[in-house]
Amino acid sequence: MKFLFIVPMVLALAHGSVVPNPLLRRGTTRIVGGADAPAGAVPYQVSLRQFGSHFCGGSIISSRFVLTAAHCAEAAIAAFTKATVGSNLLNQGGKSYPVDKFIIHEDYDGYVIKNDISLAKLSEPIKFNINVQPIPLPEQNTEGGADLLLSGWGTTTYPGSTPNELQWINLTALTVDECQRRLAAINPVYENQICSLTKSGQGACHGDSGGPLVADGAVVGVVSWGMPCARGYPDVYTRVYSFKAWIQKEMDENSS
Results as ranks from 00 to 15, higher is better:
residue 186 I to S: 00
residue 80 F to K: 14
residue 65 F to M: 07
residue 173 A to K: 07
residue 188 P to N: 02
residue 155 T to V: 00
residue 99 V to M: 05
residue 110 G to H: 00
residue 151 S to A: 15
residue 89 L to K: 02
residue 236 V to E: 02
residue 130 I to F: 04
residue 249 K to M: 07
residue 79 A to Y: 09
residue 225 W to V: 00
residue 176 V to H: 09
residue 101 K to R: 14
residue 164 N to C: 07
residue 173 A to S: 15
residue 34 G to Q: 05
residue 172 T to L: 00
residue 122 L to N: 10
residue 123 S to Y: 10
residue 168 W to H: 12
residue 208 D to A: 07
residue 235 D to T: 02
residue 229 C to F: 01
residue 252 D to V: 12
residue 230 A to P: 07
residue 111 Y to H: 08
residue 139 E to M: 06
residue 37 A to R: 14
residue 142 T to S: 12
residue 13 L to N: 10
residue 176 V to C: 07
residue 10 V to F: 00
residue 39 A to K: 14
residue 172 T to N: 08
residue 164 N to P: 11
residue 154 G to K: 02
residue 149 L to R: 11
residue 73 A to H: 05
residue 84 T to C: 08
residue 107 D to C: 09
residue 49 R to D: 12
residue 27 G to K: 02
residue 32 V to Q: 07
residue 214 V to T: 13
residue 117 I to H: 02
residue 40 G to D: 13
residue 31 I to H: 04
residue 126 I to Y: 00
residue 10 V to P: 07
residue 254 N to Y: 00
residue 165 E to G: 04
residue 21 N to D: 08
residue 145 G to S: 11
residue 121 K to W: 11
residue 50 Q to K: 04
residue 210 G to V: 01
residue 116 D to C: 10
residue 31 I to C: 05
residue 12 A to W: 04
residue 232 G to N: 14
residue 131 N to S: 15
residue 32 V to E: 06
residue 179 C to D: 12
residue 47 S to H: 09
residue 122 L to C: 13
residue 119 L to P: 08
residue 168 W to M: 11
residue 108 Y to Q: 10
residue 131 N to G: 10
residue 172 T to P: 06
residue 5 F to V: 00
residue 66 V to A: 03
residue 117 I to Q: 05
residue 187 N to K: 00
residue 46 V to K: 06
residue 46 V to C: 10
residue 129 N to Q: 13
residue 47 S to F: 05
residue 251 M to G: 15
residue 154 G to M: 01
residue 215 A to K: 03
residue 57 G to D: 06
residue 240 V to L: 11
residue 141 N to P: 09
residue 253 E to K: 15
residue 90 L to K: 11
residue 224 S to P: 02
residue 182 R to E: 11
residue 62 S to N: 13
residue 131 N to I: 05
residue 34 G to L: 03
residue 224 S to V: 05
residue 64 R to N: 14
residue 136 P to K: 12
residue 227 M to E: 09
residue 104 I to R: 04
residue 22 P to F: 01
residue 182 R to A: 06
residue 76 A to C: 14
residue 219 V to H: 09
residue 248 Q to A: 14
residue 154 G to Q: 02
residue 133 Q to T: 14
residue 78 A to C: 14
residue 4 L to A: 01
residue 213 L to Q: 03
residue 37 A to V: 15
residue 120 A to C: 14
residue 233 Y to T: 03
residue 189 V to Q: 05
residue 8 P to N: 02
residue 204 A to W: 04
residue 164 N to V: 06
residue 164 N to T: 10
residue 55 F to Q: 06
residue 82 K to D: 15
